[in-house]
Amino acid sequence: MPKALETVLEIDLSALTHNFNYLKSKLQPQTKFLAVVKAFAYGSDSVEIAKHLQKLNIDYFAVAYINEGIALRDAGITTPILVLHPQSINFKILIERCLEPSIYSPHVLNEFIKTAEALSQNNYPVHIKFNTGLNRLGFKENDIETIVSTLQKTSVVKVKSIFSHLVASEDANELDFSKLQIERFKTIAKIFEEKSGIKPWLHLCNTSGVINYPEAHFNMVRSGIGLYGFGNSAEEDKNLKPIASLKSVISQIHEIEKGETVGYNRAYTSKGHEKTATIPIGHADGISRIYGNENGYVFINGKKAPIIGNVCMDMIMVNITDINCKEGDEVIIFDATYTASNLAESAHTISYEILTAISQRVKRVFLPE
């Protein structure tokens, strides 16, 4: 594999295939698989990721917002797409582009029905979201009669699925609450089916739910972070392969003496004769200021180099005093060995945050299978 000569995000499509197959092996053959490709496919590239997964016969995609779904349709993605947080102002184009909305409140339900009626729709697929404890979006159990009553007055929509979201499926300390959510969801599904006379698909599990709660796989599961190589536990991470590697290059090396400072606001002061390397990646590329001042690090020739001083918009400086390296050498911010989780932990955050923060000005390079 050629070494990086500039800042690049390498995407390993064979690792994506591995993760998909591993997670799918946890499911019953009839259980459908929904891939979450919101937020630019967790910072990689939603179009290329979706194209690859479509070749693997993925059953569904999910995005957060309508414009993300439109981008996939424009790229030729024909697989069904669930929009998890649609805004009513965009319902017309949602229908025109054959996207499927999550309906999570009476207001959203009524607004979508109005738009669907205006566009002369019949049995347009919708997905009803219930709140079982996350308290973010979703109907409550006592809303079921209102939902059913509203649906029975129109033929423009049909309920394709009902779903909810686990709060802490990766956390063994929250086992009881996760099981409570599963039971709440089962109760909601039973009441909904009895009152509506229809039997929609059910889905509840995210990546950690797929791994930890096989009894709750129902008709479909949703995976985001797992597809990108993280299982929300160190043990499961061994079974997955991070698909993204963020790499850069040493632009310049400086030698500084004791008492000299580095970067904005003189945030780092040399403790003696030291060497620093400047690397062309900064907070405009997704390396937040929280990684500065020796909270974060990079790897150069297999050795850890702490980030010193404040992270700049386009650059970071690292301490290479004890590293044998030269200008033009490759720098690894994270890869399959020194993972995004490891880097995130150094600054007390999570892999999701650093992955989704990678700016789209960073060049994406796709490694074929």
Rank of each mutant, 00 (worst) to 15 (best):
T337S: 12
F40R: 15
F185R: 06
S359H: 09
E193P: 01
E100N: 13
V311F: 00
R222Q: 05
N219H: 12
M315G: 06
Y291S: 11
G292D: 00
I144T: 08
I188Y: 10
E330M: 08
V331K: 04
E6F: 02
S359N: 11
E215Y: 06
L72H: 02
Q152P: 00
L355W: 03
M1E: 12
N212E: 00
R361L: 06
H165P: 00
S161D: 02
L34R: 05
H165T: 09
S161I: 01
N173W: 05
Q87H: 14
K304W: 04
S351C: 13
E48M: 07
T7F: 03
S346Y: 01
Q54T: 14
R184Q: 14
T187D: 12
E345T: 12
V157K: 12
I281S: 08
I113F: 11
L355Y: 07
L227C: 08
I188K: 10
H85K: 14
K153R: 15
D237Q: 10
A50S: 15
D329M: 06
V63Q: 03
R136S: 05
S164T: 04
I49C: 03
T146G: 13
S251Y: 08
L246G: 07
I308K: 07
H217C: 01
S346E: 14
V47F: 08
I147P: 11
T321P: 09
H127Q: 10
A305Q: 02
Q152W: 02
S359A: 10
A234E: 15
A244S: 14
N319L: 12
L246D: 05
Q87E: 15
R289P: 01
A244W: 11
F192V: 04
C98F: 13
V83W: 07
Q252P: 06
L343P: 09
P106E: 15
I307E: 11
S178L: 07
Q121T: 10
V221N: 08
E369Y: 11
F20P: 10
A4R: 04
Q54Y: 11
R289V: 13
G259P: 04
C312E: 15
K326Q: 15
G229V: 09
I93Q: 15
G286M: 02
L202W: 04
Y297K: 11
K247Y: 00
N122C: 12
L175W: 04
T339K: 05
K304E: 13
F130N: 06
P200Q: 06
Y124A: 05
D329K: 06
T78P: 01
H18L: 10
Q360M: 11
V249N: 01
S245P: 05
K304A: 07
G292K: 00
V83E: 02
T79W: 10
V159I: 13
S208R: 00
R361G: 00
V210M: 12
N135A: 10
F299H: 12
Q30G: 08
E327M: 01
L119P: 02
L227T: 02
V365D: 08
V311C: 03
E100G: 04
K129G: 09
N90I: 00
Y228L: 13
P280R: 07
N110W: 07
I225L: 15
T154R: 12
E255G: 01
T7Y: 04
K51Q: 07
I191A: 05
L137V: 13
I323M: 09
V63A: 07
